[in-house]
Design a protein around this nucleic acid. Structure first.
Lengths: 223, 223
DNA sequence: TCATTGTATTATGTATACAATATGCATGAT
DNA sequence: ATCATGCATATTGTATACATAATACAATGA
């Protein structure tokens, strides 16, 4: 009688489906900064009405991925160098916080998972499969975020990461960066293992700073 | 011919009007945690259709002020003690960041404004006009946030502040807290004046920690 | 009595219709 | 030629209609 839960949780409102779809399209770069998000057009393309499109746009707006001008419409958010500096300044602070808290609270399981992901990252850099590399890197950091046990911190950091994602991918194209990244990941894992909070936060600080410099450089070239 | 801009910027989409209205109602406590946000009812009360209501709810959701369960509806977000701890942990980190950056960048004008607001706060505590006290306190911190020149940081801190607002008001009812608050404000202003970053961030840390303890106590009593 | 089922009601999810505004282009005046 | 002006069109803003799921409660049967 039991055990046939047959997840009726499969249901997602269309607004969420649309939100996820647009979000990924923006992060992937299929929808480029400045590109207009026209309701009717998107509705036609996704085969839904304007209503869920509009709600999804409101959500993207709050995520910082879209900008709406009343009576004119929404477009994919652009990032100036200043915008990116602002995001990175906050991200540095929160990444250090996350590292510090994780250092106290990370479980053995999570630590093991982190090591696996660290190796997966290292392996992936040999393949030059950019998507795989980027995902391993995101996962590495996400494990640390999760280890804080603070869902709000996790979601804020994910959001900040999202906003740099498009640009960070460019950073990950540069093969010369891989050795440094691999080394920093290793240092972070070591620090977390022996609960050396200073080592962890310092390394994380450097890690984010390096990315910051690179991402800003990319923005400058593009913008 | 010029100088008659006659702000045509007066226009706000109804979704924004509704959003602001509901947001304030939640912060004021007119809409209580757990209270349902029913579209038709709100639409009738505010004299608009469901469409702008729904969009406003999506926005409130992203702000963390409302929670939606698919096919069931939205309600005002509840705060457990754990939720509040999570918010406060982030807020501490960002408030320190803001204090640190403001210490480097605050202008003389802003400093003057800060002193005015500090005095306004002190005066307001004598009146027992809770709304006035709370607003002065919010303004004091907001000036510091603004001084960072980082709009994203400002909006994140405002949002975090929003989520504690309902509870912090209770804290501000306790008259015995006023002397400490006044003293801490003064220390922060002094530190900013002489650009003593350590003094500023340390005081800010204590300041937020004190509030944290008090707010958590209030949640425990209520929840 | 209690569990179950059916049904009315209410609320949300989604689509569509209507209104108002912005945009681009053609037209015409200077 | 250039700048307004007006009109057609595209797009957003808002309201409403229809579909579907959740809820409460009465009715039924064991």
């Amino acid at each position: 009688m039991e055990n046939l839960t047959l997840n009726m949780n499969a249901y997602l409102p269309l607004r969420d489906v649309v939100f996820n779809t647009l979000r990924e399209a923006i992060l992937r770069g299929d929808l480029k900064p400045g590109e207009r998000l026209m309701e009717l057009q998107l509705a036609a393309k996704l085969g839904v009405s304007r209503t869920p499109i509009r709600e999804a746009i409101r959500m993207l707006e709050q995520e910082g991925l879209a900008v709406t001008i009343p009576r004119k419409g929404a477009e994919v958010a652009k990032m100036t160098e200043k915008d990116m500096e602002d995001v990175l300044q906050v991200r540095e602070a929160l990444d250090e916080l996350a590292a510090s808290v994780a250092c106290e609270q990370i479980s053995e399981e999570q630590l093991a998972e982190l090591r696996r992901t660290m190796h997966e990252f290292e392996e992936s850099t040999k393949t030059r499969d950019l998507k795989r590399i980027a995902e391993a890197d995101v996962r590495f950091h996400d494990i640390i975020y999760q280890a804080t046990g603070n869902p709000r911190l996790v979601s804020m950091l994910s959001n900040l990461g999202e906003q740099m994602y498009r640009y960070r991918v460019e950073y990950l194209k540069e093969e010369k960066n891989y050795p440094v990244l691999i080394r920093e990941h290793a240092l972070i894992v070591e620090g977390l293992t022996v609960k050396d909070k200073k080592k962890v936060t310092d390394t994380m600080h450097t890690h984010v700073k390096n990315q910051a410099a690179a991402v800003k450089e990319i923005i400058r070239e593009q913008g």
